[in-house]
Design a protein around this nucleic acid. Structure first.
Lengths: 336, 336
DNA sequence: GATTGATATGTTACCGATAACTCTAACTTA
DNA sequence: TAAGTTAGAGTTATCGGTAACATATCAATC
């Protein structure tokens, strides 16, 4: 490997002079600068980022923790984050936790060892708290995405889950539905709690009773086996005429289960959900959804993270951004 | 930040002893080991990976370059790669090029600066050659995925594109189709060339003429605008009764175009393609596809890369692995 | 009792860069 | 002409680890 010392020797200057040329700092005569640059090109010099990081005490490495890399909500978010990071000269490491706390713990270790400058963090759930405390303790700035974690204050970018749920329910009620089920994520996740809350509020607002058996809490992530959902569909009596799904994955898996029992959407039962499906994989988008601004989650979150990093720990108030979402009405709701 | 020197001072030993305890090297008395470990816990010590990397001359960082992070073929591949990397204690950086050579070039710079130990590389196309030469020149091991690049020898994991195309065409021919169009990726990509080749061979085998106007070369990546495909559909005369799409993205976008002209699949026109769509996003899989082993691409490729890295440049023959693919027959082909 | 060997630990130099300080001409300025 | 500036370098220490070599202690061996 070529080092600045090799360059220095060949150009007949000191290593410091080479460093100055590379970083464009201090005063260098044009003659020297030109000569050093020529030698750098000749030898194909590439700066050693590790050595720089060690002395500068910053790696220019950021970390993005997501819970499901197969979910377009998160891949779109990832692009937003990466675009923003790239623009500021930072590189982005990805971690995919599969909503699994052990995996998340492993990534936390990696982050600390790597001395990442900051973390963009979609936590697996409330139990991610010790992981966040770990980061805090070691002075690693982070911004939470999509989910809050009770017990820790931080910057956070959220969607308006409660309002989203209200609007989805309203959409169904307006269509004449009065028995509306909710297939939701786990209660250990703040966004799932908010969605449940919004669902309950909307029911109340419309003088509809809350029926425990119409709510199932499952994982937001894909499952290998639909039996849990199937059992729920069998259990509900009388069955609902419409469903709200807590995210896109749940919506699709619910539709599969419905289809398996010969129920068509929207002819036999109505369905609305949070998040768009993969746009490119959809030949014919027909689900009525609350479309969250996935790209903005990543892009804005990254900007907030970079702000924190650049202000180097100067305490300023935590920022909580709630991104509004758009209701996109399509054909998955039948008017009763 | 806590360093081994802090630990050493507090435990009353030298830094070297601490290093030995951390890495489990050399001989340490149980008493000392216990004491050092206790102090490490107390102080919440986390090793500085940069400092280690600098002296050990390896980063334990690998890089995965993919061309489309929204494509489940690549995200699945990414999981395979990450699982294999994780298992061997390596971390994985992702780069998403969007089939764009400039982005690819930027990532190459990052890789060199970061001193990544190796690269798993799905190249944007033949023009990626200088990028690969750059890696080679700097001694960075790499394994190509999904696409070969003429002009450079390396380890590579490929799908059997030619055979896949033959089987897709055969499927259509067996269904009675004789005018079969191909919507393919760019000819600057080896897999697209192979698919074209397989298509031509299969036509020949079945005594069907090759008609230039039945082939369109477009990007494998998603496009904002379907006019190119639309124009092609308009242009073909007489129109084909069936289509082969070079990948999943092209298949979906083609179907959108067809639908826009009121053509249903399979009633009015038949369609087969390479690669599965996003499994979770499909309520009702109905496309007949050549399903490649995406996970294996990443997993196996990673293993080959780690082999190279562990053999530390001892020259051994380049390995070319061709993964067979499975034909999954569903309902998108109409029997004429 | 001197030598040897094994065990446990310490010292020093170095990985590749940069910050902070120092040095040296040449050029001003009074 | 002596003193002060300034542009354009060079020197040294340091970031946080580890390799290689050095050293100290003690038991075993002849």
């Amino acid at each position: 490997m070529v080092t600045i010392y090799d360059i220095a020797a060949k150009a007949g200057v000191s290593a410091m002079t080479v460093s100055r040329v590379i970083n464009n700092t201090g005063r260098i005569s044009d003659k020297t600068r030109t000569k050093v640059k020529r030698v750098m090109d000749e030898l194909g010099y590439v700066p050693n980022q590790m050595a720089r990081s060690l002395v500068l005490q910053q790696t220019h490495l950021l970390f993005l923790m997501i819970t499901d890399i197969t979910n377009p909500f998160y891949t779109t978010l990832a692009r937003g984050a990466e675009d923003a990071a790239q623009k500021h000269g930072y590189r982005l490491l990805f971690g995919n936790t599969d909503e699994n706390l052990d995996k998340e713990k492993d990534y936390i270790d990696t982050i600390l060892k790597t001395r990442a400058d900051g973390v963009l963090f979609a936590p697996a759930g409330d139990a991610s708290l010790p992981h966040l405390e770990m980061l805090r303790k070691h002075g690693v700035p982070f911004v939470l995405l999509d989910r809050e974690v009770p017990g820790i204050d931080s910057d956070v970018v959220l969607g308006d889950s409660k309002e989203g749920a209200r609007r989805l329910v309203k959409q169904l009620v307006d269509g004449g539905h009065r028995r509306i089920a909710l297939l939701n994520g786990s209660r250990t996740i703040s966004s799932a709690r908010e969605r449940l809350e919004g669902y309950r509020e909307a029911l109340k607002l419309n003088d509809l009773p809350f029926d425990e058996q119409l709510v199932l809490e499952a994982s937001f992530g894909p499952r290998s086996d639909l039996s849990e959902i199937d059992a729920w569909l069998t259990r509900m009596d009388p069955p609902p005429t419409a469903f709200v799904a807590g995210n896109n994955v749940l919506a699709v898996e619910l539709m599969r289960s419905l289809r398996a029992r010969g129920l068509r959407v929207p002819e036999d039962t109505s369905l609305v959900c949070f998040d768009e499906l993969a746009s490119y994989a959809e030949i014919d988008p027909f689900l009525t959804v609350i479309a969250q601004q996935a790209y903005q989650f990543g892009h804005l979150g990254m900007q907030m993270l970079l702000d924190r990093i650049q202000s180097r720990g100067e305490a300023s108030a935590w920022r909580k951004v709630v991104l509004p979402a758009e209701l996109i009405v399509r054909r998955s709701v039948r008017q009763l």
